[in-house]
């Protein structure tokens, strides 16, 4: 089975990926409290095939719920790099888009897509569960059309992403072994 050129298998796989999204919710800010109502009985995201994943190894979707301090960003990038290939990022709230109300804070980043590829942004401060579900439907559309190739984008533009990350982290850069599988784990 060839995975590089899209064909019938890839079409079926995309359909399965669309209907089975395992979520790793990274609760950084106020958005962490919006996740439980999204999953429980009132909004019930499980009917779209969403399910909580316990570890990054099993997860498909990384939900970043709120502002990111530079210290937190380091953990987010490590988590993102540990996930396996078809992987998506959903960023919630204006904090991840342009800094939001932390626009002049000395330790929160202003643009998340400089550091990791983001598939869908959900605007709002904080977006309600309805908006999160809208974002997930938009993501499902992207997956079905085969446009949610964040992992590929990250691998191809790794120098650019690492340069941006180095600007924020300075000397204390992340270790290489979480993304560079060339030498084996």
């Amino acid at each position: 089975m060839c995975t590089d050129n899209p064909g019938v298998w890839e079409y079926i796989a995309n359909w399965a990926r669309k209907h089975s999204i395992w979520v790793l919710a990274y609760g950084t800010g106020c958005g962490a409290i919006e996740m439980p109502p999204t999953m429980t009985s009132r909004y019930d995201a499980e009917r779209f095939g969403l399910r909580g994943a316990a570890t990054p190894r099993q997860a498909d979707l990384l939900i970043i719920s709120g502002y990111l301090a530079t210290k937190t960003l380091k953990r987010v990038i490590r988590t993102y790099e540990q996930m396996y290939d078809p992987k998506y990022v959903l960023a919630l709230g204006s904090c991840t888009i342009n800094g939001g109300m932390y626009w002049d804070s000395y330790n929160t980043i202003k643009k998340l897509d400089l550091y990791i590829p983001v598939d869908v942004y959900v605007a709002g401060c904080m977006p309600r569960p309805e908006a999160i579900i809208e974002g997930i439907i938009a993501l499902q559309k992207r997956i079905e059309e085969g446009r949610a190739e964040g992992a590929k984008k990250y691998r191809e533009n790794i120098e650019w992403y690492k340069k941006n990350q180095r600007e924020v982290f300075g000397d204390e850069m992340l270790p290489d072994y979480t993304w560079n599988f060339e030498g084996g784990i």
Binding site: A16, R17, S20, R51, D85
Partner: peptide, 21 residues
């Protein structure tokens, strides 16, 4: 709540087999 479709676990397994890494 509605809960997932009955075939959900089969879809999950198929998706996991088709993970690229």
């Amino acid at each position: 709540r509605w809960g997932p479709p009955v075939l959900q676990n089969l879809i999950d397994v198929f998706k996991l087999y088709r993970k690229r890494e």
